[in-house]
Write a protein that binds this DNA or RNA. Sequence first.
DNA 1: CTAGTATTGTGAAGGTTTTCACAAGCTGTG
DNA 2: CACAGCTTGTGAAAACCTTCACAATACTAG
Lengths: 217, 217
Amino acid sequence: MTRGRRQAPVSKKISESAVRRLSLYLRTLEELDRAGQEMVSSEQLAAKSATTAAQVRKDLSLFGSFGKRGFGYTVEELGRALRDILGLTQPWRVALIGAGRIGSALFEYRGLTHRGFQIVAVFDCDPSKIGRKWGDSMIRDVAELERVVGDLDIQIAILAVPVEAVQGVMDQASRAGVRGVLNFAPRRLKVPAGVTVKDVNLVIELESLTFALSQGV
Amino acid sequence: MTRGRRQAPVSKKISESAVRRLSLYLRTLEELDRAGQEMVSSEQLAAKSATTAAQVRKDLSLFGSFGKRGFGYTVEELGRALRDILGLTQPWRVALIGAGRIGSALFEYRGLTHRGFQIVAVFDCDPSKIGRKWGDSMIRDVAELERVVGDLDIQIAILAVPVEAVQGVMDQASRAGVRGVLNFAPRRLKVPAGVTVKDVNLVIELESLTFALSQGV
DNA sequence: CTAGTATTGTGAAGGTTTTCACAAGCTGTG
DNA sequence: CACAGCTTGTGAAAACCTTCACAATACTAG
């Protein structure tokens, strides 16, 4: 073992919220890097990520020791470490399922490719859409999902289909070997073990907003 | 006080996650209602909402007592109670700021109006978009934001603008009297006290997904 | 080389959320 | 009416997460 950064203590269980903060830290670090800053303290990282210095240090300590006592963290080095922890050193190959409004917005969203998420295939079940060109890929029939996921080595699926269709599509996707899913339909999906799902649900966000607003009255 | 349901014990602090679960329960109840079911047990509600029966009962007990021992909850009555708690008895008037891809997808999204969120004004700063018709409203210049928010009695703003512009738009919105904000731009907003912000950030969702996937290896 | 300053990394304390387990209470039956 | 069966509502326990506080340590200046 070198005197450099230590690796993760053991495989502890990491909380969802800790992981989300790591993702925030990474964004902050990228901003600092663009601004040309080389070192950052837990204090500053916390201020820019809306948390506390102790929380930052605790979160990082779950994975190792990345700073220098008395001086803080190297922006670039900590960024690399976080990318490593979050699994962002490889590019991820993503299937977008559903070429409606949400699908279209996601397809155009630059933030995804910029972070290493490549949408390598788009699917729909509407015959009037299948065959149309989006960017330089073509909208495919969702019936081909199983074959294409294998052929293109796709690991992640984004489900942007109507709620009635989503469980069926999910079943196809998991049979095809997709291991991670970002689900925009407002239904809790049943998935086999080994498949991870994250839900994005605007109504829940809005309702937690209206709850807060009504409380405040 | 009648022998009916009791009201909230006192004004305790309610956790964000509890509120989000209430929103989930409400959706489950609406599904059950459409299916014609009249009663539901905490057990069943939990199964359909991906949590535990004890959690359901604890969450509800934060606000009062809505069930009948030995029999469970009346689907319709509990639904009404949850709508009341979440502040959904009034319709909410929403401004959509940003008429790009995301804005467009949100504008078309039926789920919002269905839940009582009315998009009563759309704004952009791109002169080529201002004046265009979307549905039966017109895209307005974001410079008019302050006046229109007052005139139309808007309480909530959805920010679907580029990250560089978002803090400026937020400042305008809070000056205009908006009290709740759903922010799609990947930047933590600074807001005056009394304004509540919820962030929606796809990159964080995807990165917590890739974290899980890389761990699983 | 030593003293001084700054900031990390981390056990322990404190706080919050979830789970457990059971008394309380409702309804149908005999 | 009394009893049996079932499910709620809720204190108490357990698990989990955040904050505190300080020893360890890296670097700079003298």
